[in-house]
Design a protein around this nucleic acid. Structure first.
Lengths: 223, 223
DNA sequence: CGTCCCCTTGAGTTATTTCAACACTCGTGG
DNA sequence: CCACGAGTGTTGAAATAACTCAAGGGGACG
């Protein structure tokens, strides 16, 4: 997956050391950007913060987080290499974003995008398409949270992750059980037990808690 | 709330009898439209159907519905007078829409909107803003489905509905318990029991199953 | 070698669901 | 006017999926 033009030689740098490049958000939507590196669990932007930038994962993984006043946490999405995140039509971010593992991220100024959108209907429509795709993903995820069992949630999650990586049944999960639980609306114990059960049922194989091979029968469990 | 310009004299008509008007989607976003009436439980458009039109509720209420192959149902949103729904960036609808009660709906051709968007960045951005607002509502709703208890879900729902109607603590719920349950990710029994409990706790008063008066303490339960 | 973090597993608890019965409203038709 | 049935909402009792609490395992790292 080509994320950045002239990506050759893009090595992770220390936080705050920018490097000018071009971010390719979609076919026909390229923008001047610079890149930054964030270490594991570092916050990329905060909820309610001014949305001065739009982001794209170059390498690593990012999570969208919302926290309730009493500490209950929800993860709205995971972003992998190539994914755009933090794109807001309004003035402020509505969730915070954190690096799941050490990650490199491309930043584009929001003003750049909005200027392009105001000048050119085609550019505006491409931004709209990105938001629209996010909306669709959320709708699918809402159905999961609304009506699926724990086994179905975990199965859907694994199948979804498999569909995003390189083809093949083996996947690497960069995120912790806690992250998965807060994404699926379960507890870490339930996630852990469910994975164990899927392995007992020969729907998956695990080697280490983050490397999982999916078997055919798993797809039947993805409600 | 002004929904249609020259709305005076807009009487419900039989399904399929169009009437040319102007739909005011947002400040600065007005489009030629016609109106149609749908009776209770009638389908307005189906999942996967070509998205030839965009809709706005004139009167009544509309629900977005998704159904799983085994019959499990989810309601993604309720739309009341003034709300725009069925706006897609892609070619097809991703959920079906049904009238909750007898409703009048304004229709705008999708091609009209897309032409306006391609020609004018400002128009495109206003469409983007509508989708972005939907996205925000979905994010809030996801947090509810992910982490809130039954009491919190029902309380949030009531407070949310109250915020959409005319000011005041009294609200009319046009939708059935089944609709509420499928919106909140609960069963009808749990919704019913929770409402009864809220009334016992003097957080609400009910007169008939669809007319509810909210008391101050309810807002504390809205997690 | 000890500590920290994360994951797993077990046992007991609980919120919510499931199943079943009953109440209420509203047309329709005798 | 009342009987009837369909549709909708409420309530109770039992079942269960998922949660909570608690303990232990294993790898990474100083």
């Amino acid at each position: 997956m080509q994320v950045l033009q002239s990506q050759v030689g893009a090595e992770p740098q220390t936080t705050g050391a920018p490097d000018r490049r071009i971010a390719q958000f979609a076919p026909g939507a390229a923008f001047a950007c610079f890149t930054m590196c964030f270490s594991r669990n570092e916050e990329i932007f905060a909820e309610e913060e001014e949305a001065d930038f739009v982001y794209q994962v170059v390498s690593g993984a990012v999570r969208d987080v919302r926290i309730m006043s009493d500490g209950r946490r929800q993860i709205g999405a995971f972003h992998l290499a190539g994914d755009v995140f933090g794109l807001e039509c309004g003035e402020r971010h509505r969730y915070s974003a954190e690096a799941v593992v050490d990650s490199e991220v491309a930043l584009v100024r929001r003003s750049t995008l909005h200027k392009a959108a105001d000048a050119d209907g085609g550019a505006a429509r491409r931004l709209w398409a990105i938001t629209s795709r996010d909306l669709q993903r959320l709708q699918d995820h809402m159905l999961l949270l609304c009506r699926k069992s724990a086994v179905e949630r975990v199965a859907s999650f694994l199948v979804g992750m498999a569909g995003r990586g390189v083809a093949g049944e083996a996947i690497d999960l960069p995120m912790s059980r806690t992250d998965i639980a807060d994404y699926l609306g379960l507890t870490i114990e339930t996630v852990s037990r469910t994975l164990t059960q899927l392995e007992r049922d020969r729907a998956i194989s695990m080697s280490g808690s983050r490397h999982i091979v999916l078997h055919d029968r798993l797809f039947a469990l993805d409600g």
